[in-house]
Amino acid sequence: MRSDGDVRRGAPLTLLVDGQAVAAFEGETIATAMLARDLLAFRLDRGGRPRGLFCNMGVCGECLVTVAHGSASPRRLRACLTPAADGMIVTTRPDERR
């Protein structure tokens, strides 16, 4: 839940998370955009159970998602470290299990 205190966020932007349009603001990480939209699952484990982000500081790797942006090939990036960008396509459930 975004704090509505004394904060002015960046320009509005939209990214796609698993096909769903998610509104965010410049400066937010992919993780923030997802959590603010109540999207808590960043991957499935081997048992098919949803997994959430844990450390939010790049240490645990639980928030690795597949990110495609522009013409660059998709990458596996930590959602907690990666700024959201307009038109970004995020997939939490890639075909290949990691």
């Binding site: 975004r2 704090s3 904060v7 923030t32 960043f42 959430g52 982000l53 844990f54 450390c55 939010n56």
Partner: peptide, 19 residues
């Protein structure tokens, strides 16, 4: 999903203005 480290929660509050 939803279980986190306290440091992770704090980092959301400090740097992303997010609960």
């Amino acid at each position: 999903p939803g279980a986190m480290s306290a440091g992770g929660v704090q980092a959301f509050v400090k740097s992303q203005m997010l609960a």
